[in-house]
Measured scan of single mutants.
Amino acid sequence: MASQGTKRSYEQMETDGERQNATEIRASVGKMIDGIGRFYIQMCTELKLSDYEGRLIQNSLTIERMVLSAFDERRNKYLEEHPSAGKDPKKTGGPIYKRVDRKWMRELVLYDKEEIRRIWRQANNGDDATAGLTHMMIWHSNLNDTTYQRTRALVRTGMDPRMCSLMQGSTLPRRSGAAGAAVKGVGTMVMELIRMIKRGINDRNFWRGENGRKTRSAYERMCNILKGKFQTAAQRAMMDQVRESRNPGNAEIEDLIFLARSALILRGSVAHKSCLPACVYGPAVASGYDFEKEGYSLVGIDPFKLLQNSQVYSLIRPNENPAHKSQLVWMACNSAAFEDLRVLSFIRGTKVSPRGKLSTRGVQIASNENMDAMESSTLELRSRYWAIRTRSGGNTNQQRASAGQISVQPAFSVQRNLPFDKPTIMAAFTGNTEGRTSDMRAEIIRMMEGAKPEEMSFQGRGVFELSDERAANPIVPSFDMSNEGSYFFGDNAEEYDN
């Protein structure tokens, strides 16, 4: 993207840094990872977990959730003011799984939030270390993106479920800051804005008074975040219109849905970061690795190297396929839920299948599930090659597409044709070009129609051997075009429920 120079890199967003050079960025990201790792080690000690239990991804998720809940100030305040039966607002906890007599047992633990905050700050040299908290939120978000298709949420806001490739980060909490905003897809931002506008339509006082002023500035800020994701002048001009509207209503909703559809071809720039579970960072720190000293990046080879040398386990339900569970977590670790499966298959070195073909449910185990038949197995999170994460949407291309997802959002900077089903997408653009945004709409449609099938995206960008740390010898991959490109292809993934 041309304006790259004016933006802070995501590592800076990730670490609240002012302008830093590459070495400083690597050190501050490393410091953040160190903090998460030290916190995780301490929690495993508190909970008396064995090494194996500490490497269980379900335990990692519970521990991450506990610290996120302990620092969720708004919710904590709300819980104190609106006490609900049987919930102690000062405590947080969740299921911890232990191996007892050759069987997995679930144990519900409860801790004072104050105590968890103390352990977290102690692991982070006394700081609140917001960057580390956001990092864990993005890992949870990436896992949700890989596990669930947001059909219901899309339909509720009037969008087409086939636009799911635009929904990265749709389950990120509001408090995820600049680093969170960077990884949100165009569809996620559109959905947040539509929800806001709908509230304004239904509630006369939404934009009024002292609160209304705050609401208005939040609305304009979200519009600017979305505008910054678009790469064409016409899309940005249309966002200006939406932002400046005196009284946002149905016309703005129409414009936003139009823009979301246009992003299936004229893709937005959305950041991709490899955020790993805390149970990967903990053992690495415990083994003596100093992330701050060595430096770390979320968008280069580092996460690949770390996963190459990590042992992570997962509980497996009786009829689940461990290899499929591994694929789910591998995609989440690489922030690749909406990437082209052919690119992923090449990088991973084994075939990556669409969601609907995987015999696996989510990673988390519900409290009512029976533990008797639970097994555990090693997650295979290694890769054959590594590639640089991208934040450009890439230019655009036609490809055989599917009944489910009709476009992709690249996660890796790797040369390819970008699949999208042009006739299906263009069919949504018939007729409606009147109104105050008509010239911009016409211009956007013209650009979409001009998108050429034979153009290559990320020209000359390749993948790298894991021994090639400096990215000196790019390998331009070859793809098996007979395979499906979309992950949520004609899909039956479970729906995400809060």
Rank of each mutant, 00 (worst) to 15 (best):
L143K: 08
G485S: 10
G295M: 09
R243G: 04
A234H: 10
K103A: 14
M66W: 09
D101E: 13
F488D: 03
W120E: 06
L306M: 14
V29E: 04
S353I: 13
G54C: 09
G362L: 03
A153R: 07
D128L: 12
T147Y: 06
D491P: 01
N76M: 13
K214H: 14
I365Y: 02
P95Q: 08
A323H: 13
A286C: 09
G169L: 07
S310P: 05
D34E: 14
E81M: 09
C333I: 07
G435R: 11
K351S: 09
S297P: 08
S165I: 07
V414A: 08
L418Y: 00
E320H: 08
T215H: 01
R204A: 08
A251G: 05
S407V: 03
Q58K: 13
V270M: 05
M66G: 13
G404S: 14
S245L: 04
G282Y: 12
H135L: 03
Q235P: 12
A182M: 08
M66H: 07
R317Y: 02
A451M: 06
A401D: 01
I201L: 15
Q415T: 03
S486R: 02
R208E: 05
S457G: 15
N211Q: 04
F258T: 02
K422G: 14
Q58D: 09
L79T: 04
G94K: 12
N368W: 01
W139V: 06
I444D: 04
P83K: 01
G393M: 03
G431S: 10
R441M: 08
E252I: 07
K227M: 11
H140E: 14
Q4H: 08
G282K: 09
P423L: 01
R221N: 09
R199Y: 13
Q20V: 01
M374P: 01
S176T: 09
T390N: 11
E484Q: 01
K214E: 03
S413M: 09
P95A: 14
N124A: 08
A178Y: 13
I194T: 12
N368S: 10
A471H: 02
G288V: 04
Y296T: 11
G94S: 05
C333T: 12
L56A: 10
G17Y: 00
R261Q: 13
S274V: 03
P423R: 15
G460E: 01
K103N: 15
C275Y: 03
R213M: 08
V312W: 13
R74G: 03
E80H: 08
C333K: 01
G158W: 01
R102N: 04
R216L: 04
